[in-house]
Design a binder for these strands. Structure first.
Lengths: 207, 207
DNA sequence: CGACTGATTGACGGGATTCAACAACCGTGG
DNA sequence: CCACGGTTGTTGAATCCCGTCAATCAGTCG
């Protein structure tokens, strides 16, 4: 799939389900006033549309953030898999529970942190999830989001995201080049974002 | 249980799970800066801690909003129930998926609506969920939250919630007396909150 | 009747938005 | 190779919604 391609549209009926093999996707919703909110971002290994797939209708738009590859599961195959293989069913269930956990953290992020905190938290979460997916070795990684998208994920405006990122660069917290983010001071970034990775429930994957 | 009583504390190990029989509960999280964010509110019929129960650790504090009654499920009973009764398993799974859906809507609410919109949305959601739980007949209901709690649910301050509620009363949108909220103009309230009940996935309950 | 919690009010300040313009970047095609 | 159009990033000034602080009022309960 190409970057920006829409996988599933808001309001559409949906039965199957996809697994994300490579690249990143994100779910978002547009309000009537035109404002957009990104609800979640997905890294390889995630199942971005379990929710709509199992509930039947998509409540959000699911879109490619970067070019990537998907695995498609047909509805009946998924059903059979879930009923015949308890371990897989439990793993998928667990995945949906972790989705909720991350979503709850986003509520707190958007609701109770200032701009610096929100962005710092987003950077920390993304780094952590990449690392747990085995896609990050050192302390720099590619954040495949435009400032517009960061704004829509954090409930800010692109202008303010820009100014806040500049401040974080000025104070030596991070370094950016192209779309590459380098975290210079992880501890200070985590403190700024009040980041506690517990909500990601990574224990099971630690190994 | 009494109002305000803590059912499950942040960070605690948790194996069982509860069902809410009567009264309301809410989950919340306190950030290091002292700010509090309410992540979700539960009405009778909900299972407020499926997430922590199945994942093993509570990431949020679960607390009684009002006096109420709970049903306790022991961990092993829950396990057996889930593995022996596919219908119950599916219903519980569905419940967790709807939790996620509501949580996503809250992200959008807190991230992209102004104070009036957020509060209007909260009022609409609560009314709708009460109605679907069979606890609401007319157009007035008891909102069992203090303005402080409304603030923590919407990412605002109590002061601003107060002023916004006053404005909503002045313009005849709602009427409040004690903790009782009467919706005078549902259509205008829903429009103000940009409320679309689709995300609640109430079809299945419509009976 | 005091003590407490919750609701209300006013003045002030500030973080974030808005608007608008400009610069930098990128892939495309002549 | 460079001109180009579109997207993304940057900047400044003015504005405003909401937060902060602090005091007061109202209702409840022992």
């Amino acid at each position: 799939m190409e970057a920006g391609q829409i996988i599933l549209d808001e309001g559409k009926h949906s039965t199957g389900c996809i697994g994300l093999l490579a690249g990143f996707t994100y779910r978002h919703r547009t309000l009537r006033n035109g404002a957009r909110q990104i609800i979640s971002v997905h890294v390889p290994g995630d199942f971005p549309d379990l929710q709509s797939g199992l509930l039947g209708t998509a409540i959000h738009t699911l879109q490619m953030l970067t070019p990537g590859r998907l695995a498609l599961f047909r509805a009946d195959d998924l059903q059979r898999l879930v009923s015949e293989r308890p371990a897989i069913r439990d793993a998928l269930w667990r995945e949906t529970l972790i989705d909720t956990s991350i979503c709850g953290e986003w509520v707190a992020n958007v609701g109770r942190r200032d701009a610096r905190g929100r962005i710092a938290h987003l950077l920390c979460e993304f780094a952590m999830r990449l690392r747990s997916a085995g896609l990050l070795e050192g302390d720099s990684y590619e954040l495949p989001m435009t400032q517009d998208q960061i704004a829509d994920a954090t409930g800010l405006t692109a202008v303010h995201v820009n100014r806040t990122l500049q401040e974080m660069r000025r104070t030596g917290l991070i370094h950016t080049e192209r779309r590459m983010v380098k975290v210079n001071d992880w501890d200070r970034l985590a403190a700024l974002g009040d980041f506690n990775p517990q909500y990601l429930h990574l224990e099971a994957v630690r190994n």
